[in-house]
Computed example of a mutant assay.
Amino acid sequence: MTTTDTAPQPSVLARTGSWILRALRVELGIYASIGRAVARRPALPPGASGHSYHRPVLTILIVFIVLSAVEIPVIDLIVHRWPLVRIPLLVLGIWGVTWMLGLLCAFLMRPHAVGPEGVRARNGLEIDVPLSWDDIASVEIARRVDEERSPRIADEDGLRTLSLRIADETNILIALERPTPIRLPGLPPKGGEHAVGAVRIWVDDPQAFMRAVARHI
């Protein structure tokens, strides 16, 4: 049982406040990711190697960015005569393109990390799960395809498992020595603190990931 299974449901005020703070953190993360991309400085702990996970969604992200960019001049041409409509739509369009670029940069600049302290399992803008070597029992290549909209945390072979899927797939299984608390963005039951016995992630190059693990584990 996770630490959130018996927790009282948060109030409407708590949920609203959490949503606002989370949205603010995401917005700041967008610009921080763009800044890291411009400076070519991935978010990696000292001595750690980065392992990408963006390959399955890269084409989709690029298509959305291109479509969003093309949409701006098209809409501007349509509403050019009405400044009160044109200006807000321009601002919204530019913000949308910036947001999509920031999301792409987050995938590129926040890779999984393997280093002296352990593994940091990441996904996009928000999720960053640190796992120390003392907590890790084993790491193996184990590809798995889940159904769409599968829960992020579920029981699997008797273990509470966190799955950080990319396009519904994972290919690395990290088994933990004991139920280990991890924190997800948002409020319970889907967010907050959970105790998990395994973590599944997707890595673009699982062999390189395993070589990095072998150097440290």
Rank of each mutant, 00 (worst) to 15 (best):
G17R: 08
P45T: 05
L84V: 06
H80S: 13
V57F: 03
A7H: 02
A121L: 08
S132F: 06
S11L: 04
I30Y: 10
H216K: 09
I65S: 00
T98V: 13
A7F: 06
V199D: 00
V199S: 01
Y31V: 12
R81G: 12
S49T: 15
T16I: 03
G47C: 04
S49V: 12
I141R: 13
A137E: 12
P188T: 11
A167T: 12
L21F: 06
N123Q: 14
P8M: 00
I65N: 01
P56W: 07
A214F: 09
A214N: 14
G102W: 06
E156G: 10
H80D: 11
L58V: 01
L184M: 08
R165N: 12
T98C: 08
R120K: 10
F64W: 05
Y53M: 03
P56F: 07
T98L: 02
S33L: 08
E169I: 11
V26S: 09
E193N: 13
I166T: 15
I174R: 08
V79W: 05
L89S: 05
M210K: 09
H216F: 10
D155T: 14
L28F: 13
I60W: 00
P116H: 04
L176W: 04
R215K: 14
P179F: 07
E71M: 00
I60R: 02
P111W: 09
L101T: 03
I60A: 13
E169T: 15
R178P: 00
R25E: 11
L131H: 03
R120W: 01
W133F: 10
D204H: 14
E148R: 02
V66A: 06
S163R: 11
W95D: 07
G186A: 09
L164I: 09
V85F: 01
V199E: 02
P46C: 01
E117C: 01
E126G: 02
A142L: 09
A7I: 11
G158C: 05
V12I: 11
L58N: 00
R40Y: 06
P46G: 06
V12T: 10
G29S: 04
N123A: 12
S138H: 04
S132R: 08
R36G: 03
W202C: 05
G115R: 05
E27F: 04
G102H: 11
G50L: 02
A154C: 10
I60F: 00
R160D: 07
F107D: 03
